[in-house]
């Protein structure tokens, strides 16, 4: 009995020590792309060993700044540029593009006649309909604030509710209060079965486009980086989209050189 315990303990220590192998590629990627399983589905088609950590763009770039990620998959132009300025050796390429949706209860959403997302937000604020914000410094929240700036409205008042939580909780709160929120399409599709919300359709949704970049941080990640942003990687991304969402949500960039 004691022998078996000792062997079990030893095996455990070996297992834990073995996991800290230095030859694996560490990839930091946006929460939604990781949580949805998209990145895992993409990298499973790659021949090497890749470990994926999810986080916000800010979190991933902070760890990448310290050299802890080999490749970063992020989606905030401003933060990306700042990072590249600090790290002249880093390489950035466009990876894929998803889009944000403004979602709300079907009966109210149908009444909105706006042509652009910013106009739609102005209309929601003007009518005093409840809007739920994540207010958590995420990419989604950053985009929401940009759209409010475009709308010319100040999102302040009892109708404007902050959760400070991730997307899943924020969607549940939005649904319960028959309110509006902004959400990445991938996250919305994953949660749609539990919700009664629908997306507002726009003739022009340029402002909702959500381009992701891949950044090569450490040289050790180059092989994976080249594969991911090359033809094979783009094909793998399309297949992964189909596998995870049954449709293309993260559309591979056609010309990945930037």
């Amino acid at each position: 009995m004691k022998l078996r315990l000792a062997i079990g303990l030893l095996a455990t220590v070996v297992l834990v020590a073995g996991c800290s192998g230095s030859d694996r590629i560490l990839v930091g990627a946006g929460t939604t792309t990781v949580d949805s399983g998209l990145i895992a589905a993409v990298e499973s088609r790659y021949s090497g060993s890749v470990s994926v950590v999810g986080g916000s763009t800010a979190e991933i770039l902070a760890s990448a700044d310290q050299g802890s990620f080999d490749v970063a998959i992020v989606h905030d132009e401003e933060q990306e540029s700042a990072f590249l300025a600090d790290h002249p050796d880093a390489v950035r390429r466009g990876l894929f593009t998803s889009r944000f949706l403004i979602v709300g209860p079907a009966d109210l959403a149908g009444q909105i006649a706006a042509g652009t997302p910013a106009e739609a937000l102005a209309e929601i604020a003007a009518r005093g309909w409840t809007f739920v914000t994540r207010a958590d410094g995420s990419g989604t929240h950053a985009r929401e604030m940009q759209l409010w700036a475009l709308s010319g409205m100040d999102p302040v008042g009892e109708w404007y509710v902050a959760t400070g939580q991730g997307m899943g909780f924020t969607l549940q709160v939005t649904d319960q209060r028959s309110a509006f929120t902004i959400v990445e399409e991938g996250a919305f599709l994953a949660a749609r079965d539990t919700l009664t919300l629908t997306a507002i359709e726009f003739p022009d949704d340029t402002d909702l486009m959500n381009p992701y970049s891949a950044i090569l941080v450490n040289e050790s990640g180059r092989t994976f980086f080249e594969w991911l942003t090359g033809l094979d990687g783009r094909n793998a991304t399309l297949l992964a989209n189909d596998e995870v969402f049954g449709q293309v949500v993260y559309r591979p960039s056609q010309d990945s050189e930037q």
């Binding site: 560490l26 470990s51 760890s63 310290q66 802890s68």
Partner: peptide, 20 residues
């Protein structure tokens, strides 16, 4: 444990060892 941190050379970040 950050690569450039004091214990960065251990390369233990994002491993079960770091969690322990």
């Amino acid at each position: 444990l950050w690569n450039d941190g004091i214990l960065g050379s251990w390369e233990a970040l994002f491993t079960p060892g770091a969690m322990v």
